[in-house]
Amino acid sequence: MSFKESGQMKPLLSIFIFIMCLFTIVFFRMESRRLGYTVLKMTHSANQMKSQYQSELVKLARINDPQNLQQYAMSTLTLKKAKQGQIIHMTEEGFAVSQ
């Protein structure tokens, strides 16, 4: 292509670049909107998970309620309360030994 011909292409090129810029802007705006929706969805899921975690935590705490455990141990496992003579005293290091 001669210099003259390339000079004739310049306006076309400018228009092309201008249009491309517009497209790029639109593309980025669309992308940011799309990402916004993704973030929104993930925030919802995270909140839902947090909420679920919290209710599971409550369930666990309810199961571990001493009253509940005692009832289970005595009714289902037919265990009895410990008596004094049956208790093994332990120290941090191990079993209780005479000093």
């Binding site: 005293h89 332990m90 120290t91 079993f95 209780a96 030994v97 005479s98």
Partner: peptide
């Protein structure tokens, strides 16, 4: 987890 202070023979493991 307190260790007994007064140990009867029954409770003590022979050292």
């Amino acid at each position: 987890g307190l260790a007994p202070v007064l140990l009867s023979k029954k409770q003590v493991i022979e050292k």
